[in-house]
Amino acid sequence: MSLDKATVRSIAELARIEVPEEALDHLAGELSNILTFVEQLAAVDTEGVQPMTSVTAMTLPLRADDVTAGGHADKVLANAPEAMEGFFTVPKVVE
């Protein structure tokens, strides 16, 4: 599969990574190479094969409904690039 610039632009938008317009061509080439490489899989007959999400034979363990965390807003906010009045802050979002 060869990706065009528009597709790369929209993937980058979905992934929220800014890509300068002049870098799109090169990136499209790189990503296309990778896709061509992984597309070998199309040759494998997977009729009737169940997808494998996890290698473990276990099922999901359940924990008790106990309050064991929280109560430390200071620690939660300590690494924040920006915070005010106990909140994280971001550029204003208009709905």
Partner: peptide
């Protein structure tokens, strides 16, 4: 389906 689901199936064959 063409990529991720396919890869998960091949992954089972490898396992």
């Amino acid at each position: 389906d063409a990529y991720y689901a396919k890869a998960q199936k091949v992954r089972r064959l490898i396992a």
